[in-house]
């Protein structure tokens, strides 16, 4: 049998695999934001601000303000 004749089986395989492992839009979004070690530029700047804020807060508490 020619390999080209297996193209319908290949399409069927892709459909079945895609259906079995399909992720919702929310799950796909989570993949982008929950990845360890992955920091898009916007998230990195927010993290720096958060760390600065936390640092100031701890200094204020420590100094009794």
């Amino acid at each position: 049998m020619n390999l080209d004749e297996w193209k319908s089986q290949w399409e069927a395989y892709k459909d079945r695999t895609g259906e079995a492992y399909r992720l919702s839009d929310d799950q796909l979004s989570d993949l982008l934001t929950d990845a360890p070690g992955f920091r898009p530029a916007g998230r990195l700047s927010r993290r720096i601000l958060l760390n600065l804020g936390m640092g100031l807060f701890l200094v204020m508490i420590g100094s009794g303000c």
Partner: peptide, 8 residues
């Protein structure tokens, strides 16, 4: 995503 799942 079907394509990516197939590759995986």
């Amino acid at each position: 995503q079907k394509l990516v799942h197939t590759i995986c």
